[in-house]
Computed example of a mutant assay.
Amino acid sequence: MTRNTSSDKKELAKEQREQLLEILKTRFEKNMSRHKDFEWVKVRAKLDVNAEKLWSLNEMEKTGGEPDVIGYDENKEEYIFCDCSTESPKGRRSLCYDREALESRKKHKPENNVIDMALSMGIELLTEEQYRALQELENFDMKTSSWIQTPADIRELGGALFCDNRFNHIFVYHNGADSYYASRGFRGLLRV
Rank of each mutant, 00 (worst) to 15 (best):
S88R: 00
E11R: 09
K76M: 11
M121H: 11
E18Q: 13
N50W: 04
Q16Y: 09
F186V: 01
T150D: 01
L157V: 09
L102H: 02
A45E: 10
T2I: 14
K9E: 08
E100T: 13
T150H: 00
I70K: 04
D37I: 15
G176V: 04
S7M: 13
L119W: 05
N113G: 01
L190Y: 06
L20C: 05
N58F: 09
F28D: 02
H35I: 04
E77R: 07
R166T: 14
L12D: 02
K10G: 05
Y97M: 03
K106F: 07
K53D: 07
R92W: 04
Q19L: 10
R155V: 04
M117T: 13
M117V: 14
L157D: 10
S85P: 10
N139T: 15
L161I: 06
T86H: 11
E87T: 08
K14C: 12
V49I: 15
H35M: 04
F38D: 02
A118K: 00
V192H: 03
G91K: 06
N168M: 15
Y97D: 00
W147I: 00
C84G: 00
I70D: 01
N75H: 10
N112M: 10
G176L: 13
G176F: 12
C82D: 04
N31W: 10
G188K: 00
F38C: 05
L12I: 10
E111K: 12
T63N: 12
I70S: 04
R155Y: 10
